[in-house]
């Protein structure tokens, strides 16, 4: 595999992990613009646990899970005040959280402050790719469970879900916490792959992009974040390739205008995301070649 392709694949993997971390809360109706906060927390805590100088010197395979646990704990604690907000206010609350994290880290000297922090262990594609696949499989499994069903129910109608026995608060806390753990996993891998982290990388633009992958990919099925992240990671790169092939420099220069236009277009054409529940249903039925219904006549008559 060429170096270029490998580097793109790594970026894709990281984006997919981030996207699933934001997808889980989004599937239960929470808009989380705090991805950068959890990425920062994950990257720095794993880096510190891993650092032989000034840290604990744990190997990466311990420091990453510990960092995830730590971030899950932080997410659990902050989820209670944050989940009192909803809609655009939750967007603001999670955004504020990310800013607070960034402000903290930049002022902590043992984490390098504004100068950033080198990270010891290196995670190459042989680590990042399997982990990303694991995250995808986990998310597909998770959304197929009854808990996943309750998430989707809460997304549609909280009060009805409550009346059927769903503890909405607990489910939302679970979604937020597990999502944060996944996001921080992505952050930790980011640090270990590039071996250098600084808070400026994990800015609000990153949070916005990740939320965009999820919302435009679709929050109804586990396919959404995968397709969304792949689509939006690939488009700017493809436009750059097109520019290179055709020798038209202006395409590369203005590719983010195209990118923006595509985003707007998608919101017009597929307001519920690229992949919807109905679409998956239709495709899977075509695959199996099922007849659309089983014994309709017998069913209708009995009532």
């Amino acid at each position: 595999m060429s170096g270029y392709l490998e580097s793109q694949l790594i970026i894709l993997c990281l984006n997919v992990i981030f996207a699933y971390g934001i997808f889980l809360p989004a599937a239960s109706g929470q808009l989380n613009l705090g991805a950068a906060g959890f990425i920062t927390l994950g990257a720095y805590s794993s880096a510190w646990l891993n650092a032989s100088m000034g840290g604990l010197g744990l190997p990466m395979f311990f420091s990453i899970p510990l960092a995830m646990l730590f971030c899950a704990f932080v997410a659990f604690v902050i989820s209670f005040p944050i989940l009192r907000t909803r809609g655009v206010y939750m967007v603001l609350a999670t955004f504020a959280f990310a800013e607070v994290v960034s402000g903290f880290v930049i002022n902590l000297d043992f984490l390098g402050g504004a100068a950033g922090m080198p990270v010891d262990d290196h995670a190459n594609i042989n680590v990042v790719l399997p982990v990303a696949l694991g995250v995808v499989l986990f998310s597909f499994y998770f959304m197929a469970t009854r808990l996943g069903l309750t998430f989707r129910s809460i997304h549609d109608d909280e009060s009805v879900a409550t009346l059927f026995g769903v503890n909405v608060r607990s489910a939302k806390v679970a979604a937020f916490t597990i999502g944060a753990a996944l996001t921080s996993l992505g952050g930790a891998l980011y640090g270990h792959h590039y071996n250098y982290i600084e808070t400026q990388t994990f800015n609000v633009l990153l949070s916005i992009y990740i939320l965009l992958y999820v919302l435009l990919g679709g929050t109804q099925t586990a396919w959404g974040p995968l397709v969304g992240a792949a689509f939006f990671t690939a488009i700017p790169e493809l436009l750059r390739q097109v520019s290179k092939e055709t020798g038209e420099q202006w395409i590369a220069d203005t590719r983010f205008i195209f990118f923006g236009a595509i985003i707007v277009l998608m919101m017009v054409v597929r307001p519920e995301g690229l992949v919807t529940r109905t679409m998956v249903e239709r495709l899977s039925r075509r695959d199996k070649g099922d007849p659309p219904a089983k014994t309709p006549a017998a069913g209708e008559v009995s009532s």
Binding site: F140, Y141, M143, A144, T145, R146, L147, G148, L149, T150, R152, S153, H155, D156, A161, F164, G165, V166, Q220, R277, E281
Partner: peptide
């Protein structure tokens, strides 16, 4: 956004609130 069967499975929730039931992969 839920299918007919999934809507009905939500109705079963009251009888399936234990952790193993919650983590059982209905969709797979």
């Amino acid at each position: 956004h839920l299918s007919t069967v999934e809507n009905v499975m939500l109705g079963q929730h009251a009888r399936a609130r234990s952790l193993p039931s919650l983590l059982f992969p209905l969709g797979l």
